[in-house]
Design a protein around this nucleic acid. Structure first.
Lengths: 165, 165
DNA sequence: CTTGGAATGTCAACAAGGCTGACGTATCCT
DNA sequence: AGGATACGTCAGCCTTGTTGACATTCCAAG
């Protein structure tokens, strides 16, 4: 038959295996967002606020445009979120010095505190998953995720890390 | 110092590593949904329709309640989606025979065709990612994802597979 | 046989968070 | 001087989630 696999090595590419991978992504992403979502639900915030806070924390002083390209939403969408965060004193927006059209975003103390609360919860789950799966599984996990990204997103994913140096 | 790692083996549990894993999940999930989203955008459907179609295809004859527990939304949310799919002739709802309160959901030919289009696109990306990462990475990927799920979701994830036997 | 509860469907109202389109202002660069 | 860029904002729309209330249908226990 045509479906016979040429050895065990390609079994991970059967449609059934791929389908299980798809479902694993679906269920895992739910777990991934569950803890922050629970915390955010007690405030007037949602997942969109979390994403903004996360990436501002990650790249303090980032511009609105940069954040837009990372989050992949329209400026109107981001602005709605950003406005409430600024009004609530969690994010600070400072005019740029070299280019005064730009706004540079940073977390205030309160913003940083919320960020810590959210990311502690999310990291705790990630840490538990990593620990139970082990270092080699984690390396594979990261490899597959990276291969799944759109090339442009992959560039941004790397860019964020390089900015830390 | 307290931060000194006890060897390379625990490096995958540093906050920085966990943070990168979190961001990898974020960017990868975007890629994961990008292709079906593009297809759905050309019709009057969204991601919610895709999810319903996927799990009906996966478990033909499933009940509304079962679908609800898998998708984790309210019946009102699901019903809205289901109604349009039934009206459009993609899903068939048949009253149960043993328990006639239940509705059993199956895809029509048209529904199955759309499911194939959507899942072909999603599987193509998954296949490319799997191929580029290799079988061992895939095993690790699956392990970490599974560890990340809520226990209840993990049960459902396994239940779907066992139902195939 | 009656009744309680479960499964399902439906109506209404609302909110979050996407989107498009249009417009205005400040700033920078050529 | 004029075009491009960065940002903010108003208005309106869509999908998809939520709660609450209520009707229907049916199974099962008393």
């Amino acid at each position: 038959m045509a479906e016979v696999q040429s050895g065990e090595s390609l079994l991970f590419l059967t449609d059934e295996q791929l389908r299980q991978g798809i479902e694993a992504m679906f269920f895992a992403y739910r777990g991934f967002t569950a803890d922050p979502d629970r915390i955010l639900a007690t405030m007037a915030y949602g997942r969109a606020h979390h994403r903004a806070i996360h990436f501002i924390a990650r790249s303090p002083g980032t511009t609105v445009n940069n954040l837009l390209s990372i989050l992949g939403v329209t400026k109107q969408s981001l602005n709605r979120v950003l406005r409430t965060l600024i009004e609530d004193g969690l994010v600070e927006s400072r005019q740029g010095t070299s280019d005064r059209r730009e706004r540079h975003l940073t977390l205030t103390e309160a913003g940083a505190a919320l960020e810590r609360t959210l990311s502690d919860a999310q990291r705790a789950r990630m840490r538990a998953a990593y620990r139970s799966a082990g270092p080699e599984a984690v390396a594979g996990f990261r490899q597959v995720l990276e291969a799944m990204m759109d090339p442009e997103m992959r560039r941004k994913y790397h860019a964020i890390r390089e900015a830390d140096i």
